[in-house]
Computed example of a mutant assay.
Amino acid sequence: MTVSVDLPDHVRARCTELGDGALYAVKTLVRQLTDDPHLGERTGSLGLYTATIDSDAFDACPPLVVRYAWGPPLLDVDLIEIRDIEATGPLPDVGDEQAPAPDPHTRQIAARQVTEAWRRITNWLARHAPATCAALLPGASPHEIAALEQALGVGVPVELRALWLLCAGGKDTPGAGVIPDRGWALMSLGAVATSYRWHRENQRELEAEWGVEDSMVWQPSWIPFCSWSVTDTSYGLFIDAGTGEVGHWDETAVRTVGDQTLSTLLEETADTLENPQLATGRMPGLIGGRLVWGPPLAADEAALWERFTG
């Protein structure tokens, strides 16, 4: 029986708030749970467990309580979901020092990391999921990216620019979703501009109606780049042009900014495709030559889905 552990975006965001070492500590617990789901103690509610993390074992991490749900097996997979985390002691003292300004040379290294990770992903797709590979659009030109920057009024981060130079979205066809954990599809530059304008207009309307300022509805530096599907942009991923961090939005008012950069997101995707036995959340699988992260929830897809094991 395979154990799959889901670490949702809101838990990742909470880890970031609790200290630099909190996410590493929780990811360590995730790996331990794949080996032993009984690691935590059962609470009063059926299927809910609580595990503790000792701050002495991790740098820059307070003592934590982690609550998770362990559900019944699905398609020979034991499903565990991390529900929430709570600090039970003082947060680490980070002092008053300000983070140094990003080094342009470091940003160029990140761009090369994006390029290498994307090539690993497309090489895997060409071998194992040709339908998904064929659904990807070619790269944009520097002129097209510059025109988008002018339309948005925001500079595109070097990591996202590197990705768009290689692939500027996906075709409106089944199998265009590449990025886990929901099989996010890369948005075309036109869809990026349309989505960005919609979110910013929604922000202005809320500010006018409710007096909401500097809220998490949509910041000017947030650039969308992935969506639920090529045509459905009610859910998606964005990158903060100021920090390089990747965030998530949905059709409600929920907006979260995680700890990942685009380069780490793509590297983790490539790692999971090349080494599927290391997957801790949604797992790569195939349906008719297209990549589908699963197990799928829809019964018709679940019946056709074959987990990729290498």
Rank of each mutant, 00 (worst) to 15 (best):
Asp232Tyr: 10
Thr233Ile: 07
Thr233Ala: 09
Thr243Tyr: 12
Phe238Glu: 02
Tyr235Asp: 15
Val230Lys: 03
Thr243His: 03
Ser229Glu: 04
Trp249His: 14
Gly244Ser: 02
Val246Asp: 07
Gly242His: 09
Gly244Trp: 10
Val246Pro: 15
Asp250Gly: 09
Ile223Trp: 03
His248Thr: 14
Thr231Lys: 05
Asp250Cys: 15
Glu251Gly: 12
Ser229Met: 07
Gly242Phe: 08
Trp249Pro: 07
Glu251Cys: 14
Gly242Thr: 03
Glu251Asn: 12
Ser221Asp: 02
Trp249Leu: 09
Ile223Asn: 00
Ile223Thr: 09
Ile239Lys: 07
Leu237Thr: 03
His248Ala: 09
Asp250Phe: 06
Ile239Met: 14
Gly236Thr: 02
Gly242Glu: 13
Cys226Phe: 15
Trp249Asp: 04
Phe238Lys: 02
Gly242Val: 08
Pro224Leu: 03
Phe225Lys: 07
Ser221Gly: 01
Ser221Phe: 00
Phe238Val: 04
Ala241Thr: 02
Glu251Val: 08
Thr233Cys: 06
Cys226Met: 12
Cys226Asn: 10
Asp240Val: 08
Ser234Met: 02
Leu237Gln: 06
Cys226Trp: 13
Gly244Tyr: 12
Phe225Met: 02
Gly247Arg: 11
Gly244Lys: 05
Thr231Trp: 05
Phe238Met: 01
Pro220Asp: 08
Val230Gln: 11
Trp249Ile: 06
